[in-house]
Design a protein around this nucleic acid. Structure first.
Lengths: 219, 219
DNA sequence: CTAATTAACTAGCGAACGCTATTAAATTAC
DNA sequence: GTAATTTAATAGCGTTCGCTAGTTAATTAG
């Protein structure tokens, strides 16, 4: 039986990858992709650039790993809510509630790493912005799928535009992220979330969405 | 009577300030503050750096002038809607409708210059980010004032949390801006806006907001 | 011990950053 | 015309950017 604790051959790593990644996550969350420099990252990690580059490859790859880590930790509340809550409405209500908590906890960073990371950015970082947009779209798609299930299960009317409804709640969450970043208090964000939930469609007994519900109002 | 067309003493300006400012606005709108370089700005304006600096002072002042111009042109729809529409609901509906139009018109830039400009940015540009946050807060305050008037006029119940309601619609508009930037089609954005309007409070005849309307739902 | 291996740091690359001292050009005043 | 005035372009300042070649340090294999 091989000893699982056998160490590799050369000089042992001084940089704890997991710890360094958390440091990078925090800095990128606060200052975005363009606003965080390699010098700031290495200083916060307590290493010099070569260590960072042998461990992560490039600034862009480090950012993507930090985004993955964010999605698996701070940003995982949405996926959990969608999977665990018995109804779509309860899932969305929990997403809004927990988004407020995560986005407004502590002094900094505030807001959502995916929303505030690199929306408008330089042409040389187009790939980074596109990757972020892809992650945002994926988050919306996950909500839509839960809503589709809700339609199949009768919670939502068969005429529900689940894509629009999912994108709507995602937009609210994105707006919450921006305003959390701007310093709006948690209680105010919660009040906004409660208002947002009032747009939840009212379904009739025959399974159709109530006529005037999600249609344009008359001028 | 003095000739108003008398030219000043020295060499005439080759750089049309108004035109150059519109060019800067477009670039900053597309790529944000950090993502737009002086080199790109001067190249697009067709001048060299000294001309830009004698005309605008610094990159930061140029950005602020571009934001002012945005607020007076592309971003002026909200103030106009608030001032011109007879009811607060009609004003908000028009803001959502026109936001979609402005944010998704043409290929680029898409989204809102104030929302996507410099949310998370480097510590050295903290002032720029704070100025943007201030402008976003001002936009919310303007909506809130219109809602306060609606309360005085009886359109909204006296118990309405106008601040939260204004922040909610602002959040929706900010979310629309992000998703417009991500390439979501105008029709989809419109559908989201229509859903958002369903959160508009139902007011009873006695002037109080309907009880269960904007309160947390039971778990 | 020596050799091999791996990762750290020193030092600095070329490029881009925001910005400007200096000089040349274009105009009016006299 | 010459002088004064104003703006433009040339050229490049010092700094920071992301990143890396070359060297030193720390460990295991034999």
């Amino acid at each position: 039986m091989k000893n699982v604790k056998t160490r590799p051959r050369g000089r042992p790593r001084a940089l704890d990858k997991d710890e360094a990644l958390e440091t990078a996550l925090q800095l990128f969350w606060r200052h975005g992709y363009e606003g965080t420099s390699i010098a700031e990252l290495t200083a916060a990690m307590g290493v010099t650039p070569p260590s960072l580059y042998t461990t992560f490859g490039s600034k862009e790859r480090l950012y993507q790993e930090a985004l993955d880590r964010y999605g698996a930790s701070y940003g995982s509340f949405a996926a959990r809510a969608l999977a665990e809550e018995p109804t779509a409405l309860q899932a969305v209500a929990r997403i809004l509630r927990e988004a407020v908590a995560v986005y407004s906890e502590g002094p900094e960073p505030r807001g959502c790493m995916l929303t505030t990371g690199a929306v408008a950015c330089g042409v040389e970082h187009r790939d980074v912005s596109a990757d972020l947009a892809k992650r945002r779209r994926a988050a919306i798609a996950a909500i839509k799928e839960r809503f589709d299930r809700a339609v199949r299960e009768g919670e939502l009317g068969r005429s529900t535009d689940t894509g629009a409804l999912a994108a709507y709640f995602a937009a609210v969450v994105q707006g919450l992220a921006i305003q959390a970043h701007d310093g709006v208090a948690a209680e105010a964000l919660e009040a906004m979330a409660n208002i947002a939930l009032c747009a939840w469609p009212k379904t009739s007994r025959d399974g159709t969405t109530r006529p005037a519900s999600h249609r344009p109002r008359s001028k």
